[in-house]
């Protein structure tokens, strides 16, 4: 059973719809005990870093997530909260993946909204059967800076920045796979098949 963490702000329904389509069992919850027993965890992303960390604290989930050994997928904001810190609301994040989250600063529009290419830089189960330079759907104003060894895919929006990352059992995408059509469903399905 996959636990989708309900932190009162994410686009949880979209993720749930996608898992329905894939025929995967899931539960939407903020209950510590249920999440502890889940065999996978998804943290869907929308909202703000400060608020998300606050909600996780409130639900007593911070240590649980940090110490989990089951496959974990962070989406969008769910990628950013894995970092050490975020400039959004000056937030101290989970510190699972060393790195900082900064706001885009350029003449390009902010937020970045729309379909952008992901260049795959490393092989991973998560991106199995997904071609290089595939378009995924993005909506965000902040981006992660981290070490190359954690990066599976990168994207260009004025700067080149990581958009698929992985460390041990932690995976995350800056884009929304649940909103990226068939190829997004493929990525989610790859995650669901991880053990």
């Amino acid at each position: 059973m996959i636990a989708i963490i309900n932190y009162q702000a994410g686009n949880i329904t979209s993720v749930a719809n996608a898992l329905n389509k894939l025929g995967v069992d899931y539960v939407i919850t903020a209950d510590k005990e249920i999440i502890r027993k889940a065999d996978k965890i998804i943290f869907p992303g929308q909202g703000r870093a400060g608020q998300a960390i606050k909600e996780l604290k409130k639900a007593g989930l911070i240590d649980l997530i940090k110490n989990t050994s089951v496959p974990f997928l962070g989406i969008c904001l769910g990628l950013q909260i894995l970092a050490t810190s975020s400039d959004e609301d000056n937030t101290r994040c989970l510190g699972i993946i060393p790195g900082t989250v900064k706001k885009f600063s350029s003449e390009l529009k902010i937020p970045q909204i729309g379909w952008n290419k992901v260049n795959l830089t490393k092989r991973s189960f998560l991106t199995q059967d997904i071609p290089d330079s595939t378009y995924f759907y993005f909506v965000h104003s902040y981006y992660l800076i981290t070490e190359n060894k954690y990066i599976i895919g990168k994207t260009n929006y004025d700067i080149e920045y990581p958009t698929i990352i992985n460390k041990n059992n932690f995976y995350a995408t800056q884009f929304h796979p649940e909103k990226s059509g068939d190829v997004g469903l493929k990525l989610l399905n790859n995650f669901c098949k991880l053990c």
Binding site: L108, W115, Y157, D158, I159, E160
Partner: peptide
């Protein structure tokens, strides 16, 4: 030139 692969929708 900055690379920007964001597409028009």
């Amino acid at each position: 030139k900055t690379t920007n692969n964001l597409t028009k929708r």
